[in-house]
Design a protein around this nucleic acid. Structure first.
Length: 273
DNA sequence: GTCCAGGGTAAGC
DNA sequence: GCTTACCATGGA
């Protein structure tokens, strides 16, 4: 267990930001994450102070990159026009979140699952998949399965995880990865357009899922996923057209502020009046 | 009972 | 090129 100072970092917000479905909220100030084949517990000690259940070396080489802690998120704030009241409020609400650097396969499968599901439901499916096909980490923790485990699964087992019609997408895409028809590691060498095209060639992956995988796994900060929440914000606050061009190269970060604030009780309450 | 959720696909035009 | 019906599941 180590004690670290991370200015401006909000673990509660990041854990519930809809990027990753393997955060567990143990208490208001304690979180558990399964990632990188490990279990990590994070406690909030105070303003900008956190406890991580790992060594200093693991924090520096594994978790600091995972949480994108070397990036200066203050530089994204200066991109927001002063007269944009919505983004100003969104930043005050969600400015402490980070764009995670997650494993491509887990992110890919998780966002194929995500279609027409709530975040809670996605979490349930991902947990079920991990328990059935992943490796045991400890008494109660299981890693997300690799391509082999899912490629060799049968449809009935996938259906039993609550995946519904997405089961055949997950089987087909897992087989594409396992059989080497697509190399998720090699995709990191591609430019954004080529990466998007390659991802959209997979079963169950369209524009939105591809954008999520680009942003949350390949850290392409220009990717701009448009889901029902973001579209709702764009309709209500920007007359149906968001000026993405103002944030060239970093619109994905702005999108994530919009998503989190748009889902908040605070913004939703304002919409009722 | 109805509506909605971090959508994709294939058929139709 | 652009719409539209359909796809399972669970919770509000």
């Amino acid at each position: 267990m180590i004690d670290v100072v991370i200015p401006g970092f909000d673990i509660a917000l990041t854990a519930d930001s809809g990027q990753c479905f393997r955060f567990l909220k143990l208490s208001p100030d304690n979180f558990r994450l399964i990632a990188l084949g490990r279990r990590l517990d994070i406690g909030v000690l105070g303003e900008d102070r956190f406890a991580f259940s790992c060594t200093r070396g693991e924090f520096d080489t594994l978790w600091s990159p995972y949480f994108d802690l070397q990036e200066d998120y203050l530089r994204f704030r200066s991109l927001i026009p002063r007269d944009d009241a919505f983004l100003g409020a969104a930043l005050r609400y969600a400015g402490g979140l980070r764009i995670l650097r997650q494993a491509p396969f887990e992110t890919l499968i998780s966002f194929i699952i995500s279609q027409r599901k709530t975040i809670q439901a996605i979490k349930g499916c991902v947990e079920a998949l991990s328990r059935r096909f992943g490796d045991r980490i400890d008494e109660e923790s299981f890693s997300f399965p690799g391509p082999e485990g899912l490629a060799k699964a049968d449809l009935a087992s996938l259906l039993a995880c609550g995946l519904g019609y997405r089961s055949r997408y997950i089987l087909a895409t897992s087989r594409s990865v396992w059989e080497g028809r697509i190399d998720l590691e090699a995709l990191s060498l591609l430019q954004d357009d080529a990466l998007h095209l390659a991802l959209c060639g997979l079963d169950g992956v369209g524009d939105k899922v591809a954008q999520c995988v680009m942003l949350f796994a390949y850290h392409r900060l220009a990717a701009f996923p448009r889901d029902v929440w973001v579209n709702r914000v764009i309709d209500r606050e920007y007359g149906g057209s968001f000026p993405e061009h103002l944030y060239k190269g970093h619109a994905g970060v702005i999108q994530q502020y919009m998503f989190c604030y748009g889902r908040s009780a605070q913004w939703r309450e304002m919409q009722k009046t």
